[in-house]
Design a protein around this nucleic acid. Structure first.
Lengths: 347, 347
DNA sequence: TTGAAAGCGCTAACAA
DNA sequence: TTGTTAGCGCTTTCAA
């Protein structure tokens, strides 16, 4: 009943001229006062603010944008909204953008049709001051398209010329994960990762793959055919990939999954196959998902929401004209109970 | 290099006048042709479309909004973005809104400060054609404030006059959950729910609480002091609530958690206490979270993304001037392995 | 079916 | 420090 936002419904929305009249100044002065420009005397500003309050005035974003050319909006593009990782990143990014007074324009591109449409039409054109790309696989042409927006582009996990990138050292982190398994005495170590044909600029799965291969090579371990499985970064995909791995003539004794959700799917497949983790097979994930603790999943922790926050900050800095440098945030190995030495150490 | 969206960077963005000139018509005709109005002859429309394509013309949303008064934007307001439920609902809603050509303006209100600011300033004013509220606790005054936006308001799980609501029968579903425990022979059944002081219009936890109480009363079972615990709808909260329940002089033999995330937290607390589920204590959740299957959680399944889709559709229908009715989607009991008869049936 | 012209409600030069 | 005056780039009467 008496919420500040509640208003009489009878009157039309006041415009800047009404405020100017009531404050006894010009519309230009109202505009300046309301935007906090320095060239307004304090008494004048006070009168304007009072008038605006009395009339319950709100600036029309459309008019303001048309006149100024600034949208005060950021487009946030992500492949999925329903997965843990993206929820966390989005959460962090939204927090920062909102606090800076920017509107957050959300675009999800869950399938090829959505992506083709997005990069074909570029619906963000003329409506944002910057774009934040959240771990979206993009190829060269798509990066070009983003540049065609003519606004700064920031990202979480998407490097590229002209794109500022916040991320982690995926390669080193993957290496740490695999080396952990190696140190436990495992020799047959498989990978569950993203698809084999990811676009160039989506380096995350490729970097983790590279880290896996490096660690295996360092340990002098072979990567048998079929040991690099595709889990599509989903729980269901991880389960299917693990099932495939278990069906191999010589199944692995340990698995490195590139995400916790895939690792959890793997856990499910292992249980379904009547096997036990870590007794029969070890599993290490990646992310430190909120529920990883519940299933005692050993994993690589990364600061997820923080990457969203940093990426948003970096983007805003670039919009403000600053130079920004790419950042890599730290990761760490979290030991829980899904990894242990193999039943009988080989070699 | 040859993506449709990639453009020469040299030329300025073409405006409607340029298109008009090239097509040999007036700007009014260009506007009509581009918006698909019927009052344009086919040859003319074709010429306009060709000219627009040649010039790579995109309508300026700011100018269009200013002139037409329509924003083609929907504000989506949710308390959290990082929780599973909201990710799913948002995913469904975004899909529908995007397909209908609306911009999705995202607002997260994770704490009291954000809420107070949102309802105090109403930053959505003048910038959206409709608002979608996703399971956000709102009191009377806040509902009034939303109405003050003077645009249709739709919701998932937020009933209220003037708000179209898509949801489930929370009361019946909760009753089903508790009755399942009763039927197994449990007598000491506790609840882990939302806070005790939820605003009136956030009926979800209240309805589930009512369903719990009804089922208990129907079974002639008492609800001892302390059996209605607050888990804040989070994993950590559920764990803490369960720990509190276990510390009771006469702890329950079964627990109904109002969300799967809280149920999973409860599972964690049970394990931490050295107890086993379901042998020592049964747990039933609510949602059918993607990972519920992994932990074998018995739960009440609800169509989450679908509620987001339906709510978006209903909102769009109202914006188009249609009358819409509230909908309740079906739920179902999903039996897994966290519920069983109590060790020794009482009574 | 098309065009002319008047706004939509601001911001930004420029002047004072 | 403040005011005057052009626009910003569309949509929408109203007329033809």
């Amino acid at each position: 009943m008496s919420v500040p936002g509640a208003r009489g419904t009878g009157s039309e929305a006041a415009d800047i001229a009404a405020v100017a009249r009531r404050a006894g100044v010009s519309t230009a002065t109202v505009s300046r006062a309301l935007r906090g420009l320095p060239s307004v005397s304090e008494p004048t500003r006070a009168r304007v603010l009072a008038a605006a309050r009395d009339l319950d005035y709100v600036t029309s974003p459309a008019a303001s944008r048309l006149a100024s050319g600034q949208t005060r909006s950021i487009g946030v593009v992500a492949p999925y909204l329903g997965r843990w990782f993206f929820g966390q990143v989005l959460s962090g990014a939204e927090e920062v953008l909102r606090a800076a007074g920017y509107d957050v324009l959300l675009y999800a591109l869950p399938d090829d049709a959505a992506r083709a449409d997005f990069f074909g039409r570029l619906p963000l054109r003329r409506r944002v001051d910057g774009v934040l790309v959240l771990t979206l696989p993009v190829d060269e042409a798509e990066v070009d398209a983003l540049r065609g927006l003519n606004v700064p582009v920031g990202s979480v996990g998407v490097p590229g010329s002209g794109i500022s990138c916040i991320g982690i050292d995926d390669r080193a982190a993957a290496r740490t994960a695999v080396t952990h398994l190696v140190n436990l005495g495992h020799a047959g170590i498989a990978l569950i990762g993203g698809g084999p044909s990811e676009p160039i600029h989506f380096t995350v799965p490729n970097d983790r793959l590279a880290g896996y291969r490096t660690a295996m090579a360092d340990a002098g371990l072979p990567v048998p055919t079929g040991y690099e499985a595709d889990g599509a970064f989903t729980y269901a995909g991880g389960e299917a990939a693990m099932a495939g791995l278990l069906a191999l003539p010589d199944p692995p004794t340990a698995v490195f999954a590139q995400s916790d959700e895939m690792a959890m799917g793997a856990l499910r497949a292992i249980r379904r196959a009547g096997l036990r983790c870590p007794e029969d097979i070890s599993v290490i994930g990646f992310d430190d998902h909120e529920l990883a603790e519940l299933v005692e999943l050993t994993t690589i922790a990364q600061p997820v929401a923080e990457q969203g926050r940093r990426a948003a900050q970096a983007l805003l800095a670039r919009i403000a004209g600053a130079e920004v440098v790419d950042q890599q945030l730290p990761t760490r190995l979290v030991l829980r109970s899904t990894t242990s030495p193999p039943r009988r150490a080989r070699r």
